[in-house]
């Protein structure tokens, strides 16, 4: 079962970290909030947070700019 990111299915691989997922998706914007299965993840924990098969990831980009 793949993971979902903001409601869309994305590829998952064993050991995939949140930081790697952000890189894969090119989610480079600094002002964002990430929750996995409804649980918020602090910014400094992206590299040590390992995603599990089927995780629901919500990435809220804030509205800077414009």
């Amino acid at each position: 079962m793949p993971i979902t990111v903001n409601g869309e299915q994305k590829d998952w691989r064993e050991g995939l970290t949140l930081a790697e997922l952000m890189e894969d998706l090119r989610f480079t914007f600094p002002l964002k909030i990430v929750a996995i299965n409804g649980q918020g993840v602090p910014r400094d924990a992206y590299e040590t947070t390992i995603l599990r098969d089927g995780d629901q990831v919500q990435v809220i980009h804030m509205m800077s700019g414009g």
Partner: peptide, 18 residues
């Protein structure tokens, strides 16, 4: 002019306003 509403991230990326 984008300064009335800049909603790209909320809409296209976050899928917050479906």
């Amino acid at each position: 002019q984008h300064d009335e509403a800049w909603l790209i991230f909320m809409d296209m990326v976050n899928k917050q306003i479906p």
